[in-house]
Design a protein around this nucleic acid. Structure first.
Length: 505
RNA sequence: GGCGACGUAGCCAAGUGGUAAGGCAGGGGCCUGCAAAGCCCUCAUUCCCCGGUUCGAGUCCGGGCGUCGCCUCCA
């Protein structure tokens, strides 16, 4: 079922028809997490955008090979010294973990030695995978095959550096640092609009003389930094040190996807410059190909309650904070966060709010119950939905640069008014849910409180409530119901008796 | 200073020249011991402002105002 697909391509600054190099296959590289802290909802908005994109393409009949890196090689905290200096983020993380250990926080106890960056990375990688799987990131189920660690691809990065020096795209500066020469690459600036003349005039005095001394051009960026004292270092022909941070994606994309040119590269909008611009320069400098990725797709940042999310604003939420109820006051099921983060268009502002989360919870609950009802009525038998008008329109909306609102506008009213044969509807439901991945996440049970359906105690209270109602002791019945509600349950009266389900948000 | 995105009801949000999708919330009703859930009905003469093009503009053009992002680690 291949509808005409159109995506906004950052490289073109416009929408264009989607096409791949090989007929039924898509190679896709998604910039992944840095593992020196817990991933936050902004990170996950970008990752979930990539996941939705992937699931949509799969539903449309493509075979998608997706790779997402795990950045465990630290970067500098400040860029004044971006080309070699500042405190490494792994060091910052180590310090934070040391403090957490001293304070006896249980999460930090998992790391024996905070000064070992690999242990720190391991710890936050595990946390990331837990959160990512809870949110239904398909690629997280393909760890480690499709989720490589940057630290394990340093030889491949060095290979790129060597080849760039050999063919004149890179040079060893007077201080021993290896730089990429942006002037050797005429297309530099095409992705971001930051062409060399703009960069020069626009640097706004922020680039100091001292940092730039050894470079041929102020925009030249680091490929290898000799630094024997660095927390993470490797041997190299240019001295013991560490690689430039743009290198890892070039190296891993080419190594794992086995291609000089990949079909789609995703990331957050902040990656456009300098990260992706530099990646393009490096990769094409090595391959000589006219593209590194054919389609560049970027998700916009989200805001929280109308403001920029930042630690200083106090509105900075990790995914696990949200699950734990930090935002809404009650635990939030991962499927709810998933919907909340994918339900607005990836290329527009999204405002993350507690209210939005509650709205999403409502939708997730209805959708899931709808699916359960269909499964039951159809006895699990579904009809192929390919030519169903709802599926057609759902896919047509997504084919239009991932128009999720339009897609949901086809599905939600259909759900509310559905009078179709259960097996027909079930086929549609399953197809749509394979893309949205909401009910599937709920049924899978993501290890949250919400999946612990009715403990004995809760079931007991429900039974007592029914008894009280039968005995027409409504004062007692109301008290019991209130008790359940206060405990965070939704109480439902059905012909078969009262049931209670943990609230989704 | 340079580059870029965006501004539609209380909130989220579709719409890419033909007379404002959808969801949530709200209001009314059915159901209920009362609720919840569900179902039915209802909810923008109007799309930030001002000009222009057109038979016709939320949609195109010009100019404002505003919000956001990047240019520096950040999804």
């Amino acid at each position: 079922m291949k509808t005409e697909i159109r995506f906004y391509n950052t490289l073109l600054h416009d929408v264009e028809p989607f096409a791949t190099q090989e007929a039924d296959q898509v190679t896709m590289y998604s910039c992944g997490p840095t593992v020196y802290d817990f991933a936050h909802i902004g990170n996950f908005r970008t990752f979930l955008f990539a996941d939705l994109l992937r699931r949509f393409l799969e539903a449309a009949g493509w075979e998608v090979e997706q790779v997402m890196n795990i950045t465990d090689v630290g970067h500098m905290t400040e860029d004044d010294l971006a080309d070699g200096g500042g405190e490494d983020k792994m060091e910052v993380s180590a310090r934070r973990l040391r403090e957490a250990k001293k304070a006896g926080r249980p999460d930090a106890a998992a790391v024996d030695d905070p000064d070992d960056p690999y242990q720190v990375a391991r710890y936050y990688t595990d946390a990331f995978l837990t959160d990512a799987r809870a949110l239904g990131l398909a690629v997280a189920d393909e760890y480690p095959a499709h989720m490589p660690f940057a630290s394990q691809y340093v030889p491949a990065m060095q290979d790129i550096v060597r080849r760039l020096i050999d063919n004149g795209h890179a040079y060893v500066a007077s201080d021993g640092v290896v730089y990429y020469s942006v002037e050797s690459f005429p297309d530099y600036g095409r992705l971001s609009g930051n062409t060399l003349d703009h960069l020069r005039s626009g640097s706004g005095g922020r680039v100091t003389e001292a940092d730039q001394n050894s470079k041929r051009h102020p925009a030249d960026f680091l490929l290898w930094k000799p630094d024997a004292n660095h927390i993470m270092k490797w041997d190299s022909p240019w001295g013991e040190g560490y690689p430039g941070w743009h290198l890892e994606c070039s190296a891993m994309a080419m190594a794992l996807l086995q291609k000089d040119v990949i079909d789609i590269h995703t990331g957050g909008e902040d990656n456009i410059f300098p990260h992706h611009e530099c990646e393009i320069a490096q990769s094409r400098g090595v391959t000589g190909a006219p593209y590194f990725a054919r389609f560049w797709m970027h998700a916009r940042f989200l805001q929280v309650e109308g403001e920029k999310m930042s630690k200083s604003m106090g509105n900075f939420h990790t995914a696990r904070d949200v699950f734990a109820g930090k935002v809404t006051g009650t635990p939030v099921h991962p499927a709810v966060l998933r919907l909340e983060l994918i339900k607005s268009h990836y290329r527009s502002h999204m405002n993350f709010t507690a209210k939005g989360l509650r709205d999403s919870a409502q939708t997730v609950r209805r959708w899931t119950e709808f699916g359960r009802r269909l499964e039951q009525e159809a006895n699990g038998n579904s009809q192929p939905p390919d030519d169903h008008p709802v599926v057609q329109r759902f896919m047509a909306a997504l084919a239009d640069d991932l128009n999720i609102s339009g897609a949901l506008a086809e599905v939600l009213p259909w759900m509310a008014n559905c009078r179709e044969k259960a097996s027909t509807a079930l086929g549609v439901f399953r197809f749509v849910d394979d893309v949205l991945y909401l009910a599937a996440l709920q049924e899978k049970g993501a290890g949250t409180r919400q999946t612990e359906e009715g403990s004995d105690e809760v079931a007991g209270l429900c039974r007592q409530l029914d008894e009280a109602r039968t005995a027409r002791d409504y004062t007692r019945a109301d008290a019991l119901r209130q008790q359940l509600i206060d405990a965070g349950y939704e109480v439902r009266t059905t012909p078969a008796g009262t049931t209670a389900h943990p609230r989704l948000a």
